Simulated assay, not measured.
Amino acid sequence: MATILNIETSTKNCSVSIAKDDELLCLVEEADEGYAHGEKLHQFIDWCAEGASISLKDLDAICVSKGPGSYTGLRIGVSSAKGLAYGLDIKMLSVNSLEVLVQSQINKGYDLIIPMIDARRMEVYTALFDGQGNPITATEAKVIDETSFEDLKGKKIVFVGDGAEKCEEVLAHLDANFVQTYPSAKYMGNLANAKFESNEFEDVAYFEPFYLKNFIALKKKTDK
């Protein structure tokens, strides 16, 4: 019976949960426009442990959402997960952030579930999953326009994530619902427990976030 701490920081949502055999014991999360994950994450972890009435020493593993998503958010989440795994001498697991989004929409009668994490402008991180949450295509960074997903006409589709709403108008030619939301640690329990049972552990020393794209620092404009 595995007790697992789940950390999700790939978007504006700083989210922490504790699950035992994929049963949710406690969830603490907050979406912050300022990406204050560095200030809040460890406090949320402590609150979550208190809410679940366990000590961090009772954990069997830590699972972190590895990306794609916000460079800063992923770096904070993965660094915290690695530090706790080292400090507590427990296993570390990771899951794709898109798969976390998909969990909220499985078995709802859709032919396809298409998660979308905002990557600025009209670009999103995305992939195709069937209605039961099984992956069909690899994760990619995709620019969305009026011709996107034309080959999926006639399918019952749900687009889910913080990139869904901005794509609704240009994808009006599809039979689709658009669910604007963030990945949440609430939906990581089942994924984490499955990986724990199959011994899919990460090498803590060498593990890196799945950024998908290189980080580009933008210079701040100054008044002349």
Results as ranks from 00 to 15, higher is better:
residue 1 M to D: 05
residue 4 I to N: 02
residue 5 L to D: 04
residue 5 L to V: 12
residue 7 I to E: 00
residue 8 E to D: 04
residue 25 L to R: 02
residue 40 K to H: 05
residue 41 L to R: 02
residue 41 L to W: 05
residue 53 S to N: 13
residue 55 S to K: 10
residue 57 K to D: 03
residue 58 D to M: 11
residue 58 D to T: 08
residue 61 A to H: 09
residue 66 K to G: 01
residue 73 G to K: 10
residue 73 G to Y: 06
residue 74 L to A: 02
residue 78 V to Y: 02
residue 79 S to T: 14
residue 80 S to D: 03
residue 80 S to E: 02
residue 82 K to Y: 11
residue 93 L to Y: 06
residue 93 L to K: 00
residue 97 S to F: 10
residue 101 L to F: 06
residue 102 V to L: 03
residue 106 I to L: 04
residue 113 I to F: 04
residue 117 I to C: 06
residue 118 D to T: 08
residue 138 A to I: 14
residue 139 T to N: 12
residue 140 E to P: 15
residue 145 D to Y: 09
residue 148 S to F: 09
residue 151 D to K: 06
residue 156 K to F: 10
residue 159 F to R: 00
residue 159 F to V: 05
residue 165 E to Q: 07
residue 166 K to C: 04
residue 172 A to G: 10
residue 172 A to D: 12
residue 182 Y to N: 01
residue 185 A to T: 13
residue 185 A to S: 15
residue 193 N to F: 13
residue 193 N to C: 10
residue 193 N to A: 01
residue 195 K to H: 05
residue 196 F to Y: 15
residue 200 E to A: 14
residue 200 E to L: 13
residue 206 Y to R: 03
residue 207 F to G: 02
residue 207 F to L: 08
residue 214 N to F: 15
residue 214 N to T: 14
residue 214 N to Q: 14
residue 216 I to S: 06
residue 218 L to H: 15
residue 218 L to K: 14
residue 218 L to I: 15
